[in-house]
């Protein structure tokens, strides 16, 4: 290689685009383009099977007028909200317990952490299947047999429309509580020990220290966990598909399931796309909040 060609090659390497090109191409072709296209499709009456379509606001009009859209949104937010509250409370309890255990030199912490995190590694579909088997009202349903032995009647975890959503939340919390725990635990490590010392000198007990030192210092991390869990909850599809398929009586039908149904069962691409844009809008809104929180975090750091 001559020196001029090698210096040209070095100059190419000084350009950021040389490094960003492969990733950029993938994202443009398989992400940005489909994203724009789904917005375009939402303004059409396209069907999955017929090639021709017209541009119209009809898909949005129908989606927004359809009472089941509102129900789906409600189910989605209840699912995400319930998951958020439980994951935060249980994740916080676990993070505090592990933090305290580490400080006291207790045994078995790694075992606890590993087993809780293990649930997070299992594919969502498999989580759904596990809980479906476990909570079944059939003769193999172990939990229901025990409940029946203790309280006299079994619980329709998956068959009762009033309970099914709570069941889905339970399975989702089982899967994801470890992630919240790890986020909060990392946050706990960054609280200066002097703050606790000062509070202790002032005579603050354990609860007062948690209330006046831990919570306020940890607040930014808690909010970030909150947004991340909410987005995860809103986007859930696999777990519910395996657990309830959106039933019974559509009690667990989250937005993702409804989009899938509109497009791949009713072949209604336009309306499915409009619903998908609704989902996209919620995703973007949550991301905006997340970014705002990150900025506040960086300022206080």
């Amino acid at each position: 290689m001559t020196s001029t060609s090698s210096s040209a090659w070095a100059r190419v390497q000084d350009s950021p685009w040389f490094w960003l090109l492969p990733a950029g191409l993938f994202l443009l072709v398989f992400y940005t383009w489909p994203l724009l296209d789904v917005v375009r499709l939402s303004f059409t009456n396209a069907s999955l099977v017929a090639p021709d379509y017209d541009y119209t606001f009809d898909s949005y009009r129908r989606v927004l007028r359809d009472p089941s859209t509102l129900r789906t949104l409600k189910v989605t937010f209840l699912f995400a909200g319930g998951s958020v509250i439980l994951k935060l409370v249980l994740g916080m309890a676990l993070a505090l317990a592990i933090d305290a255990g580490v400080k006291r030199g207790l045994h078995g912490i790694v075992l606890v952490r590993t087993s809780v995190l293990a649930a997070w590694v299992i594919p969502g579909v498999v989580v759904g299947v596990l809980w479906k088997i476990l909570l079944s009202t059939s003769s193999h349903g172990l939990l229901n047999y025990w409940i029946q032995a203790a309280f006299g009647n079994s619980v329709g975890f998956l068959t009762d429309p009033d309970i099914a959503l709570s069941t889905a939340i339970l399975a989702n919390v089982w899967r994801g509580v470890a992630f919240t725990m790890i986020l909060l635990y990392a946050g706990l490590q960054r609280i200066p020990p002097e703050l606790y010392e000062a509070a202790r000198v002032d005579g603050a007990g354990a609860i007062a220290r948690f209330r006046f030192v831990t919570l306020p210092t940890l607040a930014p991390v808690i909010f970030i966990a909150l947004v991340l869990i909410t987005i995860g909850g809103i986007n859930t599809f696999d777990l519910i598909m395996a657990l309830t398929e959106g039933g019974p009586a559509r009690a667990t039908e989250v937005v993702g399931l409804r989009v899938y149904q509109q497009v791949f069962q009713f072949m209604n691409l336009g309306r499915g796309a409009a619903l998908a844009v609704l989902l996209l809008a919620v995703n973007l809104l949550m991301t905006l909040i997340y970014l705002r929180l990150l900025r506040i975090n960086r300022k206080t750091d």
């Binding site: 489909p34 994203l35 789904v38 986007n235 993702g256 691409l269």
Partner: peptide, 26 residues
């Protein structure tokens, strides 16, 4: 473009795969 591109990556990370899967199917 460094900062805006990093932000776009972050936004993409938050979007459900369902949204892009519809056009990709076509």
């Amino acid at each position: 473009a460094q900062k805006p591109l990093l932000l776009i990556l972050l936004v993409y990370q938050m979007i459900s795969s369902m949204v892009i899967a519809l056009p990709l199917y076509r």
